[in-house]
Design a protein around this nucleic acid. Structure first.
Length: 426
RNA sequence: GGAAGAGUGGCAGAGCUGGUUUAAUGCACCGGUCUUGAAAACCGGCGUGGGUUACACCACCGGGGGUUCGAAUCCCUCCUCUUCCGCCA
């Protein structure tokens, strides 16, 4: 959620930023409406405060009068307060409406893009920040896509998943399950070595949490919802991890806050179809190790680059061809100020698959969740939040299987062998 | 799931027979005096948000709603914690 102060005081910058994000004209028009409504809010608040001050004063007097036994005068004053109360009640309602309307409008505005974000509206406009330098892997004769490899070596059963639940819920077996567990441990160990504290959060969150990180109301339809308890299955560990610090005032010395968590992620993916959802490309449930950082605004972009380096290190160790994209204004998420996507090459499909998204949200999330820190001048300021996948499992498994297939089976990268306990899947 | 009790400012802890407690007091913390320095002692400051050039002022005592001229205090409801019972990995 953008800060109202920023909208008011830096209107031109806000509008320019929104344009870069390719928002609709209706959204653009909101900026002006928001400022007007905020004026209205202030005026209403002020009127109400004056009335409340009056009521407080009169009530005080009534109290004094009763105490000194002047019952008649006290009762006379009561009548006076009565009429003021009616008025203040109406103002209270008007104030609430104004606040609700204001919030409803502000919440529709996406975060402003960082200066370095390229112009553009679609995926093709994303900037290749770092291309794959090495040669593309040469596949063996008769190389298979990952879903066929999964079947051939009995690693994953999509069919069983359908029996148990439905499409998009694969069942991992044998070395497939073992590989998955190895990757989870590998990623967690790497994150721990980089100074992240491991966290095991709940896999369901309440409305407030989903709202604070921006999933609600924006992505309501993308989450699984347990109606009876009004809980949402987490679409990413970002939600519980970041919410750990909801409504918190940190000291400067608390920074940096570095958390990592492995969780399954649940996404309804309504509207997806075709080759997009083939095999492991897009699932309703997949495993992911997430990094979350809370940082001082002065550091957050340095930290973003650190996170990039961390993810790169993982992909290097897994010996996978990858590239890094800097997302253009139109392709970035609603919440983000700057996002880098990592993609690994799916050799058999001939396409890049997104396996990580690393973003700086600046104060967009912290504003909504009231995550602040005390600055040197003693005042509270909003902290910056960042997160990134390190990494998303299912697609890593897919590209791992495809890129490392040999005539004799699938060779595990060296870094992983200690975790899998085997060198080959055959 | 059932019963009882409890949720107050960073912490501890009063207030809870409605009105100079519209939040005491202690600890912690910050500044100052004193001191060679420190401790102690003393003085002052010390929650969040709205609002103002700055004051004033307003809101917040787990969340929401209600009664009243006036609610931390009374009522309703939800949440959480503690204890007991039941169930259970």
């Amino acid at each position: 959620m953008l800060e109202i102060g920023v909208i008011r005081e830096e209107k031109e910058r806000v509008i320019a930023g929104l344009k870069k994000k390719n928002v609709s004209n209706e959204q653009l028009a909101l900026v002006e409406k928001i400022i007007l409504e905020d004026d209205n809010r202030k005026a209403t608040q002020t009127s109400l405060d004056i009335l409340l001050a009056k009521t407080n004063k009169l009530s005080d007097e009534i109290g004094q009068l009763f105490k000194s036994g002047k019952t008649t005068e006290a009762n006379a004053l009561k009548g006076e307060v009565g009429s003021i109360k009616e008025e203040s009640k109406m103002l209270e309602i008007a104030l609430k409406e104004s606040k609700d309307l204001l919030e409803e409008m502000i919440i529709q505005l996406p975060n402003l893009p960082h200066d370095s974000v390229p112009e553009g509206s679609k995926a093709e406009d994303n900037e290749v920040f770092k291309a794959w330098a090495g040669p593309m892997p040469e596949l063996i004769e008769g190389a298979l896509p990952h879903w066929e490899l999964a079947e051939k070596y009995n690693l994953i059963s999509f069919k069983d998943g359908v029996t148990l639940t439905g499409s998009g819920f694969p069942v991992y077996k044998g070395k497939g399950a073992r590989l998955q567990r190895a990757l989870i441990n590998f990623f967690l160990d790497e994150a721990t070595a980089a100074g992240y504290q491991e966290v095991q959060p709940p896999l369901m969150v309440n409305k407030e949490s989903a709202r604070a990180t921006g999933q609600l109301p924006d992505k309501e339809g993308q989450m699984y919802h347990c109606e009876k308890d009004d809980f949402y299955l987490i679409p990413t560990a970002e939600v519980p991890l970041t919410n750990l610090y909801r409504d918190t005032i940190l000291q400067k010395t608390d920074f940096p806050i570095k958390m990592t968590g492995y969780t399954p992620c649940f996404r309804r993916e309504a509207g997806s179809y075709g080759s997009d959802v083939k095999g492991l490309n897009r699932l309703h449930q997949f495993d992911k190790i997430e990094l979350v950082r809370l940082e001082h605004p002065d550091n957050s972009y340095d930290v973003l680059m650190q996170m990039l380096a961390h993810v790169e290190g993982l992909l290097e160790k897994l010996e996978l061809p990858y590239r890094i994209l800097r997302l253009c204004g139109g392709d970035m998420s609603f919440n983000s100020a700057l996002t880098f996507d990592f993609e690994t090459w799916s050799a058999a499909q001939g396409r890049w698959l997104e396996v990580s998204s690393v973003s700086n949200f600046e104060t967009f999330q912290s504003n909504r969740m009231k995550l602040r820190f005390r600055d040197d001048d003693g005042k509270t300021r909003l902290a910056h939040t960042l997160n990134g996948s390190a990494l998303a499992l299912a697609r890593i498994v897919a590209t791992l299987l495809e890129n490392h297939q040999t005539a004799d089976g699938i060779k595990m990268p060296k870094a992983l062998q200690a975790y899998t306990g085997f060198e080959m899947i055959n």
